[in-house]
């Protein structure tokens, strides 16, 4: 659907599902220069679900998140969060950027990074109090990183850094969590820990969206999938959407048929 409001005769907006959705994206396009990275994507992510955004390299998965969050300017499109325009509901959204997007030699300890998730609550001027520190420590506990609180962030392994980023998102205490490749380059133990935390978050009625690169675990970790390659290929529950046909459409000839079938059949494992 194009970013056109559907208006019925009475003048009321036709409800296309965005009022009840945790995140509704309509006609979102993002470009770098004159080359589109995301082209007119619609997506409706229901409350309390856990969605994987899947697609080949350069398909615009990260750009979709960044466009939705206003991190990069959008060419077109509207984003609503819990039925409100994104800007009005920004405080209900937590974001985990790609780990490689920051300089880990930055002068910050683990606890300092988690406290960044509380800046909205603390405000610009006020000093961080004991209560804020306790909140940050509780978030570190949830990702098993409490004992690293005083470490310089550059001394952590990749998996530990990723968990610190997750703790910062938890500190934001949001209703919608958008994560960009949270499982990229992390060890198996970290992957399990992160998924466990995200499933807790979902069980608490919040909504989780992850850019995800590992097709073999999509069916195991997520209940919904959004397949994109520049534009949207398909979205919906894993059982009906994560199919051989849709994967072929998304990846073109890049995946061997046998491999795709294995993935699609292996779901629910």
């Amino acid at each position: 659907m194009a970013p056109v409001e559907l208006i019925a005769r009475s003048g009321e907006l036709v409800d296309d599902g965005r009022k009840d959705a945790a995140l509704a994206i309509r006609g979102l396009s993002v470009s770098y220069g004159a080359k589109a990275a995301v082209f007119s994507v619609d997506a409706t992510l229901p409350l309390g679900t856990m969605t994987a955004i899947v697609g080949p390299n350069g398909a615009g998965k990260s750009s979709l998140l960044k466009g939705a969050l206003g991190v990069v300017p959008r060419l077109s499109g509207e984003v609503t969060v819990f039925g409100r325009p994104f800007k009005e509901a920004r405080h209900r959204v937590a974001y985990v950027p790609q780990r490689a997007s920051v300089d880990w030699d930055f002068p910050a300890r683990v606890i300092d990074v988690v406290l960044m998730g509380l800046y909205r609550k603390i405000g610009w001027v006020r000093l961080a109090g004991r209560k804020h520190r306790e909140t940050a420590m509780a978030c570190l506990e949830r990702v098993n990183m409490a004992e690293f609180a005083e470490r310089q962030i550059g001394q952590l392994s990749g998996g530990q850094q990723q968990r610190v980023f997750l703790a910062r998102a938890l500190a934001q205490d949001a209703d919608l969590y958008l994560l960009d490749e949270p499982l990229a380059g992390v060890d198996a133990a970290t992957e399990r820990a992160i998924i466990a935390v995200l499933q807790e978050v979902k069980a608490a009625g919040r909504t989780v969206v992850c850019v995800h690169h590992d097709l073999s675990t999509v069916a195991q970790y997520f209940d919904r999938v959004l397949l994109i390659n520049l534009s949207k290929v398909a979205e919906g529950p894993v059982e009906t959407t994560f199919t051989v046909e849709n994967l072929q459409h998304t990846y073109g000839g890049r995946l061997a048929t046998a491999h795709v079938e294995e993935l699609a059949l292996g779901r629910g494992a």
């Binding site: 969050l69 206003g70 974001y95």
Partner: peptide, 8 residues
């Protein structure tokens, strides 16, 4: 430290 997070 993290301009993308800041913007979000």
């Amino acid at each position: 430290f993290d301009p993308d997070f800041a913007a979000a």
